[in-house]
Computed example of a mutant assay.
Amino acid sequence: MDWYTGNTTYDTVLAIAFGFAAFVIIGGLFAQSPYGRFASTSVGFNLDPRLGWWLMELPATVVFAVFYLSGPDRFEPVPLVLAAIWVLHYGNRGWFFPLSIRQMPGKKSTFNVSVVAAGVFVTALHGYLNGAFFSNDYKNQYSTDWFTDPRFLLGLVVYLGGFALLVRSEAIVRNLRDKNDPGAAEYRIPFGGGFRFVSSPAYLGELIAWAGFALLTWSLAGVAIFLITAGNLVPRAFATHRWYREKFADYPADRKALIPGLI
């Protein structure tokens, strides 16, 4: 199979990623992944959210490093910059975020092991596809001219904007509850930042970031992770919006689910 890079292993894994994206998109129409506010302690085996998130995201760091460092172009300028963007994203998502989760004291573990397994599969795919693509430059597109290419420049701006929205939104939610107060309410209405406009600005930021990433890398690997992310987060954003409205009678009526002013 040489329809994309000509590397049989890489192209096979890429096809698997797109197949899984279709599965996630269809599955997301019927049910939400059992974590966070949609978690259940009645089905399956659950982990502490901090451990679950860390395990789920770990392959994005480890697998990426293994395949990136094994490629012939690993020390070239453009691959190094792309790797730095990766490290920025997963330094936050895979390491800072899990460690910063404020679990309510005494609450049962709620991060379902099925979510961990699915997440490990996705992040391992993701890590391999991007690590190998960057450091092998299969499409011969990552000369230093790429730094002035409009796709890279626009994609970088989009990515950084989405990443900033994601980080800011997660910080607002994290600070809603004092980790030292056992009696604090588990859920409260968040305000400020992107929450002025939508119920799930972190999800919106994640989607914007991956759209920018797909553009700045100009790769089908970037498209695949955007589709997988959208398949999971878009229906989850609508479910979250409904959950807030049902739980809080004073929830802001003009706040949309995911896209400001639209839906």
Rank of each mutant, 00 (worst) to 15 (best):
T110D: 15
T110A: 14
E170C: 06
A124C: 10
A171K: 13
G205N: 04
R236G: 02
P59A: 12
F67A: 05
W218Y: 11
I208S: 02
E186C: 10
I26M: 10
N92S: 06
R245G: 07
A65C: 11
L258W: 13
F134N: 02
K247Y: 07
V122M: 11
V78R: 01
L129Y: 09
F45C: 04
Y244I: 07
E206Q: 10
F111C: 07
I225M: 08
Y159C: 01
R196V: 01
L165G: 01
Y35E: 11
D250L: 06
R177A: 05
G28N: 05
T61I: 15
A21E: 03
E76Q: 14
I208C: 01
P72A: 11
F195P: 00
L29H: 12
A31E: 09
T240C: 12
G194R: 05
W218G: 00
V113H: 01
N140F: 01
A237P: 00
V78C: 07
F18P: 00
P235L: 08
L204T: 02
G52R: 08
T110Q: 12
S109C: 02
I26Y: 14
T144D: 02
G231W: 13
L166D: 09
V173M: 15
T229Y: 09
W218T: 01
F96M: 13
W54P: 00
A65Y: 10
H126N: 15
A257K: 10
P59H: 05
L129D: 06
G205H: 02
A21W: 07
R102M: 03
K247M: 11
G27Y: 09
